[in-house]
Design a protein around this nucleic acid. Structure first.
Lengths: 204, 204
DNA sequence: AAATTTACTGAACGTTGTTCATTTTATTAA
DNA sequence: TTAATAAAATGAACAACGTTCAGTAAATTT
């Protein structure tokens, strides 16, 4: 029966189209400012149609979030793959911060937006964030095995590195560094220096 | 003319009442979930009345934000005032993180929510965040004057310490640490340890 | 007591996410 | 090929939101 297969295909295609439009609009306008109605308009369907393919707006968020994590993971594997773990850690931090600044709305989606717990607790962040997070953990493990860092517990270290990176990115995205009297360029420079200095102090 | 004075007083009282209600609801339900209509209902006035005292919802945010910064500043002055600057820095970090975890919705208001630039750029964060931020800067300055920390630039250090603290708090508030397989208690412990370890590595 | 200023409100506008009865379209059966 | 059935899509509606404004109610001045 080729019809059911074709329908399956069309359904997948439609889901794809919806997510594509959502991704575009989320990136351009942000999650909050993007309405289901506008997404529907973009793909030239009725708003109600979207609800035949996705339960609610949150589900769109999860899908886009997953793709965003893929994107970050790819950035890691391509830009932070130096054999020396310490150099790799350096690349990793730079890549993370750079990603956040270059894709502010995606970063928002991934790390700042309030995600309803029900899905977040289960398999969702497990498959998404997990892979990315463990790319960092693995790097740190290798550093610690070689006694390159002044830390004993790899998880504490991972928590710390991630928090430092996220702190820099998210405070910057929310313009909170305006409290220091610096222009855009100076702040950007200061963020870079902060990473350098942080890596310096944790080095053995 | 006592009437104009009384009217002035009543106007101030009304503004106070509105902010009081807003503060309560923001803290209980968060900024987004608190509607002008519900605030109006709480103070037993029409929603339109609120607009006679405040331009829009953002203005309520700013007022509550200011009080929240006061609250954090008071927490600093009372809980982080040890004469030894290094001990004080330790107290400061603990107080900051503790504040964020104990007052999640206020923390959200202060550091996570998207604040419209127009007001944020001008005097607003200048009087609010500035005082709090410089409490940290002063502490760090004293540490550096006494060569207690492995940093050369106090601003870079301030940026770093703040980012680390904010990263820990905000990722926790948004449940992103769920990616590590830890329960609530373990995460809380890990955050504490992260601070300890961070202070250890920056110490001279 | 009348006129004027001030304080307040009900109703409305244009949004939003979401639902559901109804219609349009595609597939199957006669 | 046409009638019956299943699937897909939609228009209209609901409740809620921030905000505005013409109009009512109250207080103050004349």
């Amino acid at each position: 029966m080729g019809i059911t297969e074709r329908k399956e295909r069309e359904k997948k295609q439609m889901r794809r189209q919806i997510i594509q439009a959502a991704m575009t609009m989320f990136r351009e306008e942000g999650y909050e400012k993007t309405s289901i109605r506008k997404i529907a308009e973009m793909i030239e369907y009725s708003p109600a149609t979207i609800y035949l393919y996705y339960k609610d707006k949150d589900e769109l968020l999860y899908e886009v979030q997953r793709e965003a994590f893929d994107k970050l993971y790819k950035a890691f594997t391509t830009k932070a793959n130096h054999p020396d773990p310490l150099t790799r850690l350096h690349q990793l931090c730079k890549t993370y911060v750079h990603f956040g600044i270059q894709h502010p709305e995606l970063y928002d989606l991934m790390f700042i937006i309030r995600a309803p717990m029900n899905v977040l607790e289960e398999k969702h962040l497990w498959t998404n964030g997990h892979v990315v997070f463990h790319y960092l953990v693995d790097c740190l493990k290798e550093c610690m095995d070689k006694k390159l860092l002044r830390y004993k517990d790899v998880m504490i270290l991972a928590l710390s590195v991630w928090s430092m990176g996220h702190g820099l990115v998210s405070l910057n995205l929310r313009c909170r560094f305006k409290v220091m009297e610096m222009n855009e360029e100076q702040i950007s420079q200061a963020i870079d220096t902060s990473i350098e200095e942080y890596l310096r102090v944790i080095k053995a």
